[in-house]
């Protein structure tokens, strides 16, 4: 059984059209079909958060959504966070500045999760940041540097001096 469907969607601001098996999850579609390998697959059962992408601006686990379900929607992956000229999103810059990544495998999921969170919580507390990323597992950093990066990014996005 390998039923497929042709779907159209917006990915990182670009109109994309592709054939996908209906059973293929969104993370495999982004990585395999579209070649956007920045979205990582860590558990495929919805716990680790590495595959988090934004669908219509909301952070979702791309392993828990079928690619066909994204048809007609707008998807943003880590590749779509920086500006066209390569300038990093303030959150990406803060991760670099605060050693918020080591191996970098969980990073795309952390970033996409925090993009939505910071849009809704421009001045979060440390505890709120921790709650926001509690569905994203990192085995390298012990999280403190990620939390520091998120708080710094929030300041930068608000226009406060660091």
């Amino acid at each position: 059984m390998s039923e497929t469907r042709r779907i159209t969607l917006i990915v990182n601001g670009e109109h994309r059209e592709a054939e996908t098996p209906v059973r293929q999850h969104l993370a495999d579609f982004l990585r395999g079909t579209l070649g956007l390998t920045g979205t990582h697959v860590g558990c495929e059962h919805g716990v680790c958060g590495a595959c988090t992408v934004l669908v219509d601006g909301h952070a979702v686990r791309a392993c828990l959504m079928l690619a066909v379900q994204a048809a007609g929607h707008e998807v943003t992956t880590v590749e779509g966070l920086s500006l066209a000229d390569g300038t990093l999103h303030p959150l990406q810059q803060a991760f670099c500045d605060h050693h918020g990544l080591q191996c970098g495998f969980c990073t795309p999921g952390m970033l996409t999760t925090l993009v939505e969170f910071l849009a809704e919580h421009p001045a979060p507390s440390e505890e709120e940041v921790r709650l926001a990323i509690s569905g994203n597992i990192c085995r390298c950093t012990g999280y403190d540097s990620i939390v520091a990066a998120a708080l710094a990014a929030a300041r930068a996005l608000r226009g406060d001096a660091a």
Binding site: G46, G49, T52, V55, H58, A59, V60, R61, L64, M65, T113, E116, F117, A132, S134, G135, N136
Partner: peptide, 9 residues
């Protein structure tokens, strides 16, 4: 209930 990402869906 779950996490931000799972509550979104």
């Amino acid at each position: 209930v779950g996490h931000l990402q799972t509550r979104n869906r």
